[in-house]
Amino acid sequence: MVIDTRKLQSEEDLEPMIEVCDKIHNIPKFENKNHEIKWLWAEEFKHEFPMQEPDFLNDRLKHMSFLTLCNHCEKAPCVRVCPTKATFKREDGIVLMDFHRCIGCRFCMAACPYGSRSFNFRDPRPFIKETNPDFPTRTKGVVEKCNFCAERLAVGKMPACVEASNGALTFGDLDDSESEVRKVLRSNYTIRRKPALGTGPSVFYIV
């Protein structure tokens, strides 16, 4: 995925994407911040790219919001540490979770260098505004995260955030040199989150 942050200036620009993601994936809203579930959310530059912030960052980048989500890493630490293979990498590179196999040990949360994972500290169902029957709700005690809309990809649709992005997000096969996403990468300078860790994040940001 490539995120063209030039087309996403303010938090309002991100809202439709976050909203649709929360809605279709049955993400609960909790009062208690400790229990928060987040798949797709907004962060400032200094949090999105900690230790990568230049001293004199231009004003636009300094104050804008960046889309934050699972990076579906090439060498995903969460997959490596999972003791039950509840978190696994699909052949197409998407990192998925089996909510029925997860024992809730939260090793994956400790392993993720991007803070992309959430844990169901309590039953989420009473806190879902409107349940989408096409996607499973979760039970207490399991971990979850962005799934790149695997359920939509399966029926030939783009991820919901990509669809709602007005062209700011490009999604496709990074291994296919002719794909749209590779074309965008060829013609733009992009950065990734914490590239030095060697995890190989699959989300690129045009800044």
Partner: peptide
């Protein structure tokens, strides 16, 4: 659930 703890 583990929500009764201080973990987050």
């Amino acid at each position: 659930g583990l929500g009764i703890t201080g973990m987050s």
